[in-house]
């Protein structure tokens, strides 16, 4: 790790001002389960690290009307075990319970995961499929506009994710195929049904990060059943290929994982 200055603000306002002051040289630490390993390998070298751990009011889970609202610094383990989440969106609790490993889930946060938009992260799939709203210290950003590319988001300099609001679907589930080495999602598919609308999102597979799978969505809108996906294919173009999985294999797994997610969503 390269040397950096560390600040531990107590309020979002202080954090934002520290971030603004650091300009391009600042990074927010929101659990650090991806950022710290990246810094250890010297692939990231922020001059200022702004730790959000002690900022008031960034953690917590609550139901607000027909939405589930999760504070940015809420840890994966807390989302996974929350009775509120399990009741409202069991598929989201299950997803949180499959991120990393137990120790990672005890430190990693939803805000960190979403703001980092790692192409193999799990939360972006849920946020996009559930059409979540990402609430920052400045504005509200619909998930549709939030994830803009590989490790890229709509966040502007000085902008901090405060919470994520998930509209509650009628059915939702996540199916993940882990990379045999890293255990990150090699293909993760989140399906959500809300009224007549169905969204299917894919993480781990796209060369530009999380994306929606329109062919699968159209098929499932006709009937929300794994059978609807028989014979439906996803093109391999734009998918990642690496030593673990070719683009073709990933394309195939997307459909398989989508079927399994739909089956799980129906079973719940």
């Amino acid at each position: 790790m390269y040397a950096f200055n560390y600040v531990s603000p107590k309020t979002v306002r202080q954090a934002a001002s520290a971030l603004a002051k650091a300009a391009d040289d600042g990074k927010l630490l929101a659990g650090g389960q991806t950022l710290l390993p990246t810094m250890k390998q010297r692939l990231a070298s922020p001059g200022v690290l702004i730790d959000l751990a002690k900022v008031d009011g960034l953690s917590g889970i609550e139901l607000k009307g027909r939405s589930l609202v999760i504070g940015a610094m809420t840890k994966h383990a807390d989302v996974a075990t929350s009775e509120v989440v399990k009741q409202a969106i069991p598929g989201l609790a299950a997803l949180a319970g499959e991120i990393g490993d137990p120790a990672v889930r005890n430190r990693g946060t939803i805000g960190g995961s979403i703001a980092n938009n790692d192409p193999a992260a799990d939360y972006p799939a849920a946020a996009l499929a559930l059409n979540a709203t990402i609430v920052t210290n400045k504005r509200k950003i619909p998930a549709d506009q939030f994830f803009t590319g590989l490790f890229e988001t709509a966040l502007e300099p000085g902008e901090i994710v405060v919470k994520v609001s998930f509209p509650i679907p009628s059915r939702a589930a996540y199916a993940k195929f882990r990379n045999p080495a890293s255990r990150y999602a090699m293909v993760g598919v989140f399906v959500a049904k809300r009224g007549g609308d169905v969204r299917v999102t894919v993480t781990g597979a796209g060369a530009s990060g999380v994306f929606r799978a329109p062919a699968l969505e159209e098929a499932l809108k006709k009937r929300f059943s794994p059978k609807s996906l028989e014979g439906v294919t996803v093109p391999a173009t734009g998918l990642n290929g690496d030593i673990h999985a070719s683009a073709d294999y990933r394309a195939h797994l997307i459909v398989v994982m989508a079927k399994r997610a739909v089956a799980a969503a129906i079973a719940k």
């Binding site: 080495a181 030593i243 673990h244």
Partner: peptide
């Protein structure tokens, strides 16, 4: 290519 546990499957 497999120089860490991210790519070498233990």
């Amino acid at each position: 290519v497999t120089a860490s546990y991210m790519d070498y499957a233990m």
